[in-house]
Design a protein around this nucleic acid. Structure first.
Lengths: 334, 334
DNA sequence: GCCGGTCGTCGAAGCGCTTCGACAGTTTCA
DNA sequence: TGAAACTGTCGAAGCGCTTCGACGACCGGC
């Protein structure tokens, strides 16, 4: 309410105290008597006071904003990204911070800019690649940062992710428990492996190791995302490995095509072929039939990333690596 | 370069000029001799100077940040959202602005907060509903705003969107040209219509009107998003309306299920049933078969929204309503 | 050769906030 | 019963930037 912007000076005058007293009421950095505090808070709400973010940042050297750097490249699981982003915003708000959105197409320049101009106090980066150009920059930046995903050399960085190797292994275990002896992994498009994206490779490694550990026969293939290519991949797979009775699909965009292809090839799920997916829950539930899946815990990862970056802002030491355990939800497909 | 933050004062000293001169070089608001300008710019890059955003905002009353308010509710086309967001960020950078990300779960409080604290100069809101609680707030806010989507009462607001009515009509026209006489629209889940989301209704209206205009038989149905529900909807549709030979699908998540259902029901696309979708291009291309579609021009809408909000920031008058014309891409499905 | 106009630059006054040091007034406890 | 230690509050000094008014220097016109 009231004409134009309300300043702390007006609040102070209205409450009959000094400007600094208002500031201390707000920050709690010095003790203020209950009586004074009341009066100040009353004035604040009566006048509709909101501290000016710029002035606050200038004086305190804290902007209360964190940067969220999104990838937005080919081959990404866009809906998952969105859920990460949403989780990050929500979590940041809990720490009284806002989120500045950066896209990767500005490259390292954007990161440097927002850090150097003190627009943000800290950074959260998504979809980090094994050999990520932004990593060296982060190391030399004074602002704390947290990565979602793992680069090849994560020493000295703080990284969070689903434990994809464990997720791959968990799927294999599940199929082994169900008695399948020959299984296959349909993964990301080959370009994603070539780019060195960590999660795709780690899932495959977990798959391969678990296959060996359980003495199964297993094959891991990349998988493109158009219907025709998926159909071809599935057909060739079933021809080349007729004994395959279990499928792990780690490719959100291809999931429904895989199911359609199996249907068309006359394979019933789960009677002829069991299918486990690594994908968001809603995709698994929406599929026909609903898929047994390891969910990608976007909310949890986002929340954890924010928690870690806030810890670092407080100057506390946090673990270099945080791997979230996979959770398998059993549905109709196995 | 150099130890800790570089200020404008250090640049001024290094270049042998006054602080204000450096400022004018940067802003171009007063004429500066070529010689002085050179020296200042050299000092800036030598010292690695980046203006402090907080100080700048405080002194100039401009934060050079716009807020992007995302919905993140059930029934949303998440990948489309992401592309909007990305387009908005890219466009904003072109105007030398950054983007603060807000999610709707903070409600109107978040909008009020970032506006009142001068964190942002302007706002862009996505996925506006017909009866949106945020709209009254926007009207009273001094900061300019642009909506992506249309509320019931758009007077006095600035709104941008794909012309969904025209898109629905365009699909009908296309099917009519191909000689289909009985067609159907599979739309959003019914909850989306009930919520009063504009784009779903407008597509349906465009569809219905065009059906009449072309003297066709037509039926419009909501469409859920799980495989089983889609399958049922399609089956019932073909039973109840055996003459239907053309389908318009305005539901991104259901598109691949519709195709799978048709396949399972023994209908060939496009020989038995022609399918036109209103969805992002990549979904249409990835489908089997690739779909004739009206693309959702996310990039263009985002860019246009930013352009409009910048115009308003400059104090210029802009049209209340901007409808982007639909573009139909013909592919294998019709 | 003098006057009114640019042109290019400077100095200083804020912008609204945080935070430090100071200082009455109260307790606490040797 | 004083010195020491708190408590609660104030005033003022910035934080780094933009912007306004001022002011020499230089220009052209009469």
């Amino acid at each position: 309410m009231s004409g134009r912007t309300v300043t702390i000076a007006q609040v102070a005058k209205h409450a009959g105290v000094a400007v600094s007293t208002v500031s201390y009421v707000l920050s709690g950095k010095r003790t203020i008597s209950a009586d004074t505090r009341r009066r100040v808070l009353d004035s604040i709400s009566e006048l509709g006071y909101h501290p000016n973010a710029g002035a606050r940042a200038l004086a305190s050297k804290r902007s209360n904003v964190i940067a969220l750097v999104l990838p937005l490249r080919a081959g990404m699981h866009v809906p998952v990204l969105m859920r990460f982003a949403s989780a990050v915003v929500t979590a940041a708000r809990r720490f009284d911070h806002d989120v500045l959105l950066l896209t990767a197409d500005e490259g390292t320049a954007g990161i440097r800019r927002v850090a150097a101009s003190a627009m943000v106090d800290a950074l959260v980066l998504m979809d980090v690649e094994l050999d990520d150009r932004r990593v060296p920059l982060l190391r030399e930046l004074p602002e704390p940062s947290v990565l979602i995903g793992f680069p090849a050399e994560p020493a000295g960085l703080t990284c969070v992710d689903l434990d994809f190797a464990a997720a791959g292994a968990r799927c294999v275990e599940h199929l082994a428990e169900r008695g399948h002896e020959e299984i296959a992994l349909l993964g990301a498009p080959s370009v994603v492996y070539e780019r060195g994206t960590g999660f795709a490779r780690r899932t495959r490694e977990g798959f391969v190791e678990a296959v060996e550990a359980h003495a199964l026969k297993g094959v891991a293939l990349p998988c493109e995302e158009t219907f025709d290519e998926v159909h071809e991949t599935v057909r060739d797979l079933l021809l080349d490995h007729p004994g395959v009775s279990g499928l792990v699909v780690h490719n959100e965009a291809a999931v429904s095509h895989v199911l359609a292809a199996l249907r068309q090839l006359g394979r019933r799920v789960p009677d002829d072929v069991a299918v486990v997916a690594i994908c968001p829950d809603d995709v698994a539930e929406r599929a026909g039939p609903p898929l047994t899946s390891v969910l990608i815990p976007a909310e949890e990862v986002g929340r954890e990333a924010v928690r870690l970056v806030m810890e670092k802002l407080e100057g506390r030491v946090v673990p270099d690596s945080t791997l979230l355990a996979p959770i398998l939800a059993v549905r109709a497909s196995t």
